[in-house]
Design a protein around this nucleic acid. Structure first.
Length: 350
DNA sequence: AAAACGGGGTC
DNA sequence: GACCCAGTTTT
């Protein structure tokens, strides 16, 4: 049979979408993950505040981990008013160990804006808040307000890349496909269905294709190697950093500085200087001068890996008139917890 | 368009 | 060790 006309069921056609949507939504209705931010009130509505907090937490953070912080944050700050009224430091303390601390700083900043001007109820309104980008605005507006906005996250990217066998999908391609596929009757459910599918079935390494409700439509599965989609993204090289830190006091009571800038900004830590050049001899001297300290003795060395840094920190004890403070009350990075642990103090976050 | 931004899970 | 995670902001 000559097939001169394009199939009425080509990927992207109305027929294709019409088959896909019920298949995925039916699967979702039966298998959706039960997550604390998915709870609804008597009217079947979600609390936008809890949806927002969860979405910020889940940026580049796995659900299992985000869940722990979500419980902690929403218990301590049950609504926008409570979050806005809290000191930033209290929010950072609740965020301690979760990483990407700009999220906590922006969460607090946005809470203050909302406490003053009210909470948005549209995609555009949410997008205007700090820390809320296209993904998060689409998620909140669809999940909490029923607005027809398609999310584009790592799950959606992977699922669509496989569904259409697009090895290197760019962001515009993913968003266009997600927009075209979105179920406008149940946009929030559709978005979560796609993400649940990506998290539970269409996983990065070894997708569970036999259990996938979209298997019969999946071009990557037809190709024989669905795990090959999408191609891995390029990674920037890890920077190797050597630094020196000074401990004035002990593991429980020490002199701390608040970090400024993008990296760990807002967190507290031991005074630190980066070693420059080959010898790196000046770092300790700069530290001693700056803190009016003397009699340094090496306590030891700790190393710490972050996504884009490999840090080795030499920790010295020294004497100074500067006051110590209770370390446990301040938000600290993992690196500083490791440095303090050199003294053998009980450090429960480790 | 690319880099910066944490920390942990997973294979 | 490589890759990934319900991304956003800055360069």
């Amino acid at each position: 049979m000559p097939d001169l006309n394009p199939s009425p069921d080509w990927p992207g056609s109305a027929d294709f979408s019409g088959r896909l949507r019920p298949a995925l939504l039916n699967w979702f209705d039966a298998h959706a993950r039960e997550l604390p931010w998915r709870l609804v009130d008597g009217g079947g509505q979600r609390d936008p505040y809890r949806v927002w907090v969860s979405e910020i937490l889940l940026q580049q953070t796995q659900v299992a981990r985000g869940r722990v912080y979500f419980e902690h944050l929403t218990e301590q700050f049950p609504d926008v008013r409570a979050l806005a009224a809290a000191p930033l430091e209290a929010v950072l303390k609740a965020w301690e160990g979760c990483g990407y601390y700009a999220r906590a700083r922006n969460l607090h900043k946005a809470a203050k804006i909302m406490a003053a001007t009210g909470m948005p109820d549209t995609y555009a309104g949410w997008l205007a808040l700090p820390g809320v980008g296209p993904y998060t605005a689409a998620a909140i507006s669809s999940l909490a307000y029923g607005e027809a906005r398609a999310v584009n996250d790592g799950n959606v990217r992977r699922v669509l890349s496989r569904l259409f066998a697009e090895v290197q999908p760019d962001e515009r391609w993913v968003q266009a496909r997600a927009d075209a596929l979105l179920d406008s009757q149940r946009p929030g459910d559709w978005n979560e269905a796609l993400m649940d599918l990506g998290a539970m079935i269409c996983t990065p390494r070894t997708p569970h294709c036999p259990a996938c409700p979209l298997a019969s439509s999946c071009a990557a599965l037809k190709s024989g190697d669905p795990a090959a989609y999408p191609a891995a993204k390029k990674r920037s090289p890890v920077k190797v950093v050597q630094a020196v830190a000074l401990l004035i006091g002990d593991a429980q009571t020490a002199y701390l500085e608040q970090r400024v800038g993008a990296l760990l900004g807002g967190l507290y830590g031991l005074p630190t200087e980066i070693k420059e050049g080959q010898a790196g001899e000046g770092a300790l001297d700069r530290l001693l001068t700056r803190l009016e300290a003397h009699s340094p003795r090496l306590l030891g060395s700790v190393s710490h890996s972050m996504t884009h840094r490999q840090i080795t920190l030499e920790v010295y004890a020294a004497e100074s008139a500067l006051p110590g403070e209770a370390v446990g009350k301040r938000p600290l990075s993992r690196l500083d917890h490791k440095a303090l642990a050199l003294l053998g103090g009980q450090d429960r976050l480790l």
